[in-house]
């Protein structure tokens, strides 16, 4: 203690930073371990219990009678997609929350997810597209909606409250567009409707993991690379510029990456309710204050989708899609945030 105090200031700061980085890494490692354990559990335990050795053998490509189909076709795609989509939502959400300095400004609340979802529904149901085209359209629509919300909220400067309110209005409109397209579709099923309104991993296949993985690699990597600049932006525009952040370029890249993550995941699983909104605050609570908790938020998002999906499949009396579970969990937290908020302006 006294020894630390006698060190020069710069050395003490550097030591503190090293300690924080170490603890961050430890937390991220811990979360990843928990996530891996959770994923393994969902592979082993479902309607029936498969021994760990059998799961390993199936994953290694061997043929295990009785377990091969269940794991390869049912459990594995669900688990993989849940983790990938959860990471995308968690990462995209925490980036928006950090950049706009408001926990309520997550893409699912300000309507960006609804935009991507509406585009995906129109592309799939009306135009009959699939695969990368759907992802592309979802990204474009997400960006357009984000730009529209930004421009509509821009009047005498950007106000977070106005942005959230504009987003609520826009997502109400987009949700009714989704409902209209789905209800008018010739082969209307409740499952399809639920996927695009609340998010679901029902019926996903492993090849759908390809676009999400690519998006995570490209956009996620970009975001991790820009995280120092994102951190600086929290200090306000002027301070960030003084710290050497090229505001316009960096902000555009960050928004593009976050929207890309959200949109590609939404094009596969639908907008899983509240994952983007919940992951950031939970990750910050775990990792403590300091730099934006990007990796922890991604891992927490993956965990939330995995657990929510498992609960919806096996723990509840009826099988419900993951979005219904996370919607029922996330809404009370949103209400709590509203109650706790310190009345900062309604207009």
């Amino acid at each position: 203690m006294t020894e630390a105090a006698s060190l020069p200031l710069a050395a003490r700061i550097a030591a503190g930073r090293r300690a924080r980085t170490r603890s961050r890494r430890r937390i991220a490692g811990l979360l990843a371990a928990v996530l891996a354990a959770g994923g393994a559990l969902t592979l082993m335990v479902g309607q029936s219990v498969t021994p760990a050795m059998d799961v390993m053998r199936v994953l290694a490509g061997q043929d295990v009678p009785g377990a091969g189909f269940t794991i390869r076709e049912l459990r594995l795609p669900r688990a993989v997609l849940a983790v990938l989509a959860g990471m995308s939502f968690g990462l995209g959400g925490v980036v928006f929350q950090t950049m706009l300095r408001n926990p309520l400004a997550s893409p699912d609340i300000i309507g960006i997810s609804s935009g991507a979802s509406a585009a995906a529904v129109v592309a799939i149901v009306v135009l009959g597209w699939s695969g990368a085209a759907v992802s592309g359209v979802a990204i474009i629509a997400g960006l357009v909606v984000a730009a529209a919300i930004y421009l509509l909220a821009l009047k005498d400067g950007l106000s977070g409250a106005r942005m959230i309110l504009v987003g609520i209005g826009i997502s109400a409109m987009l949700d009714s567009l989704i409902a209209y397209v789905l209800l008018g579709a010739p082969s209307w099923t409740l499952q399809d409707a639920l996927r695009w309104l609340t998010g679901s991993t029902n019926g996903v296949t492993l090849d759908q993991a390809v676009p999400i993985s690519c998006a995570l690699l490209v956009f996620g990597g970009l975001l991790i690379g820009l995280r120092r600049n994102l951190d600086a932006m929290r200090l306000g525009d002027d301070a960030a510029a003084a710290l050497g952040v090229r505001l316009t370029r960096d902000r555009a890249l960050i928004v593009l990456s976050a929207v890309g993550l959200i949109a590609v995941a939404t094009a596969v699983t639908g907008p899983i309710a509240f994952i983007a909104f919940l992951s950031g605050p939970i990750a910050t609570a775990i990792a403590g204050p300091g730099r934006p908790a990007l990796m922890p938020a991604a891992l927490v998002g993956a965990m939330l989708v995995l657990v929510g999906d498992y609960a919806g499949q096996h723990l509840l009396p009826a099988r419900v899609p993951v979005g219904v579970v996370t919607g029922a969990i996330g809404a009370p937290y949103l209400l709590y945030l509203i109650v706790r908020s310190h009345g900062q302006g309604g207009r």
Partner: peptide, 27 residues
Amino acid sequence: GRGGATPLKLALAGAATSIAASSFTTA
């Protein structure tokens, strides 16, 4: 909370309640 019923808080509370209600309805 402080500040009373501002339009923002009421709209957000309404949106959250709608989402929760439709989740339960679906379930």
